[in-house]
């Protein structure tokens, strides 16, 4: 075990709530173990703030295992920090040097209202899921395994898309604050499987529609999203979403309701 401790200076965005103006404030994180995670480093800084009677820095977190999608903020302009395929809770201080100067900013997007400091409201993403991120099946006994044959390649791709943890780093790092990567991952992980076929058109129309209504921007294929995605969700999903949406837009059939018929 390397027993090396470092000091880093933090420039942190502090904002009480949406109404009040925010500003950057500097803090010194002293004597931090390089084995500590980034959030553990913030815990240490907060302990000190609390002992001095100051307001601790608010940040979102839950599992601290890189699986829940709660954590996330910008470190020196990069969502979840400099390392690829990593959530900020899985980022360790050994990736930084003694004396580093780190600017911490919350996710910024018109569709992500400020809550406090590094915490923003990401329920816009939940609302996108709500309008189409499901399949309608009758509940009942669990079906037999492999009762529905699924090609391995489709299962793999669907599973990759399903690893999206909904952290919002894609939106945060995109110059257009586009939610295309997130939405397309949610559309793909159902749409690639036979169980997801029934609603494939409706799903694309509803989820893209909700994405636009929430005020996320348009994708311009910069690839910033995928580069900062902790789960390496691929741009191929966005292409699939566009294709599904285009097909659905031009083949949309009117819904027939009971009693409509002659």
């Amino acid at each position: 075990m390397s027993e090396k401790n470092i000091n880093v200076t933090l420039k942190v965005w502090r904002q009480k709530n949406q109404r009040e103006e925010g500003k950057f404030k500097e803090y010194l994180a002293k004597d931090i173990s390089t084995d500590a995670s980034f959030l553990e480093m913030l815990d240490a800084v907060n302990e000190e703030l609390i002992s001095k009677g100051e307001d601790p820095i608010a940040f979102d977190h839950d599992c601290r295992e890189g699986i829940c999608g709660s954590c996330g903020f910008m470190i020196n302009g990069n969502a979840h920090g400099p390392l690829k395929s990593t959530t900020v809770c899985q980022l360790h201080m050994r990736n930084f040097k003694d004396g580093d100067y780190l600017t911490l900013e919350p996710w910024r997007a018109a569709a992500f209202p400020m809550i406090k400091d590094l915490v923003v409201d990401r329920t816009a993403l939940d609302r996108i899921i709500k309008v189409g991120g499901f399949i309608s099946v009758n509940t009942g006994n669990a079906p037999d395994g492999n009762a529905i044959p699924i090609p391995k390649t489709a299962a793999d791709e669907a599973f990759n898309a399903a690893t999206c943890i909904g952290c919002g780093a894609c939106v945060a790092s995109c110059k257009n604050a586009s939610a295309a990567l997130f939405t397309s991952a949610k559309i793909s992980h159902l749409g690639l499987l036979p169980q997801g076929q029934v609603e494939v058109e409706k799903r694309a129309l509803n989820m893209v529609g909700q994405m636009d209504r929430e005020g996320f921007g348009a994708c311009t294929s910069t690839g910033s999203c995928s580069a900062s995605c902790p789960k390496d969700i691929s741009l191929v999903n966005i292409a699939r979403m566009n294709r599904d949406y285009m097909k659905a837009s031009f083949s949309k059939k009117p819904e027939i309701h009971a009693g409509d018929g002659a």
Binding site: F24, M74, N76, G77, N78, A79, P82, L83, K84, T103, E105, R108, S173, S224, A227, S228
Partner: peptide, 9 residues
């Protein structure tokens, strides 16, 4: 943002 994505991102 005060800083933009850089490096690998």
């Amino acid at each position: 943002y005060a800083m933009n994505p850089n490096g690998q991102k």
